[in-house]
Write a protein that binds this DNA or RNA. Structure first.
Lengths: 341, 341
DNA sequence: CTGGCGAGGTGTAACGTTAAACCCTGCCGC
DNA sequence: GCGGCAGGGTTTAACGTTACACCTCGCCAG
């Protein structure tokens, strides 16, 4: 029925009566092509509807014009907002963003991180929650990588970290200043010496309570598995219904905090009158839920700007000394916490 | 300082004392390789940390093992939920999903759709809001495409459409049944004979009102530009503050409906007592906002299942007759509309 | 008039795989 | 005793670009 072949450069060359190299030169805006020739080639390109084969170009040049962003889940808002920001920031530079989901499990994350996959990009922004220090240290590739994230990472990587401890501390201090005395940290964990997001934010919570002379009660550390809204909602509702005394909740993410607000409603508590709630991430939606969610803003734009700067640096100079940036955090007050008296 | 080259198949071949083809055969699990040879090759692969160059493979075979999903925006929840669902559904088949953002503008969408880009995937799921019939018709490629979406599409494409008209009608009927008489359609538009999402859903709204003997009031069609929560919120708040009489709002998406609820609060109206609200998409978060958002569920899982089925069909048989699926819709009632009396 | 240079252009050899054809060796059936 | 075949492997030629070296003018300076 049909022909298999798509049109390629040699077809254009033949039709235009020039060599393949000349076509290539025209298409890539290289010098040493006469004006007339250039025009003729472009006409033929148009006529034949020729489009370059990016795979072949990539094989030959090693460059792809594409940056990869690898996130645990597409459907966690934090990551989708991040992806949109990065994509928008990359577009003016002529770079294309593609996003992959690693799945948050160590196994799927490692597979997304096989050298094979990484090599497909000029650079990679990696938001790796499932991998530990050792996994990361095992990755050996020439592809520039910037780690976006939470955990302690091998020194040789460029990285952007959120101010997790500082942010959680800020949030908890805010709750305490507004009168909360029994502040739960939903999604946190303290048991392990890990440096992941859940632990770091719980650490900030504990620090703030310590500083305020309120001993952190282990019963108020409520771990979660999936970090989903639904899970958070069920967990807090269950605890409260079971008699846990709480007058403040720090959700380790905004989604968790939104789940917490729903769960507290389920349990007959009102926000912020009975229980005040603070989240972390300052998602777009957090301003629009009811009540508005007080949240820690991790400085999204600054993070993205830093990330791309570090990526560019590596693109220009493979040997660039790794840089570790910690983003500034700020508290955004909304209706889920009370006004000062 | 370092060597440029990464290790490649010929290095493995040399070290294992076999031909390159044998290495290729081992790595691809092809027959006609002795057991010992296989083991030796695998050992060497491990030792050298060899990983295949996917670009070269792709150039040679034309297959990529990757499916592309092109969405207008990463940070519209509907699309990120879609991406997650598709990714999860593809993983068991050994296919990888990468997501690209087209930017919702016609220009950026066309660039994402250049043949060059499309050719990088074995198949493409295209959620194209910015393109019209003619744009789509202009795309000529052998890559299997499934259109996910709203609009009228050229017949030669396989497509999955939401039941936009039916869903919006269902939602509006529900509002009317619960006593609403002045139902606005936020984000809708009726001016044009387009078949895009905003128009189709407004059409369903108009149909329902007509059927109920309530003439659709043009003042109640409130168009939006960006379909963002913030814009929706501001738009409804402004109208209501300006004296527009409304006792029901159909948000053409859940995000818009969530914005509407916030805007109504801003304007001193309570939901659902003063104004009832229904959304469309049944996002995960819609169950967790306050009050819970009544919404049209477009049958996400069925849509994804259909989409992948159509894609597989095309992968197996390029000439497969195009199929057009319209998804079933269902209303999910929550607290943003009233209980029946 | 010679040498040099810049503009315009071409030919060839990769980039790292894999499809396809081919080549051995040993063994089995008749 | 030989044809045939299966098993285990190799060789060669792509896939569609681009880097690089090279070639040929025409023209200008000396």
């Amino acid at each position: 029925m049909g022909k298999k072949r798509t049109t390629q450069m040699s077809d254009v060359a033949r039709a235009a009566g020039v060599s393949v190299m000349t076509v290539s030169n025209v298409l890539n805006g290289r010098p040493n092509v006469g004006a007339e020739t250039r025009i003729r080639v472009l006409e033929v390109v148009d006529e034949l509807g020729y489009e370059i084969n990016l795979t072949a170009r990539r094989l030959r040049t090693g460059r792809t014009g594409t940056v990869g962003l690898i996130v645990p889940r597409f459907d966690h808002q934090y990551y989708s907002e991040l992806a949109a920001r990065v994509s928008d920031a990359l577009a003016p530079e002529g770079l294309h963003l593609v996003v992959e989901q690693s799945g948050a499990t160590r196994e799927r994350e490692l597979s997304a991180l096989s050298l094979a996959r990484l090599q497909q990009y000029d650079g990679v922004l990696l938001s790796a929650v499932g991998l530990d220090f050792a996994d990361l240290d095992r990755i050996r590739t020439d592809v520039p990588i910037v780690l976006l994230g939470e955990q302690e990472v091998p020194d040789r990587y460029h990285s952007i970290k959120m101010g997790n401890v500082a942010g959680a501390r800020l949030a908890t201090e805010h709750l305490v200043a507004r009168g909360a005395r029994r502040v739960a940290v939903l999604g946190g964990r303290l048991d392990t010496p890990h440096h992941d997001m859940a632990s770091s934010r719980a650490q900030g919570w504990a620090d703030a309570l310590d500083a305020a002379g309120l001993a952190p009660d282990p019963a108020l550390v409520i771990p979660l598995e999936s970090f989903s809204i639904a899970e958070a909602r069920a967990a807090i509702a269950e605890r409260v219904a079971g008699g846990l005394a709480v007058d403040g909740v720090l959700g380790v993410t905004d989604e968790i905090a939104i789940g917490a607000m729903a769960g507290l409603r389920d349990a007959g508590r009102s926000v912020p009158d009975d229980v005040q709630v603070v989240g972390f991430d300052n998602l777009r939606i957090s301003d629009h839920v009811s009540p508005g969610l007080t949240s820690v803003d991790p400085g999204h734009d600054a993070m993205v700007a830093h990330a791309l700067r570090l990526l560019r640096r590596q693109l220009e100079d493979r040997g660039a000394a790794p840089e570790h940036v910690v983003s500034d955090v700020a508290l955004v007050e909304r209706g889920s916490t009370r006004r000062p008296k």
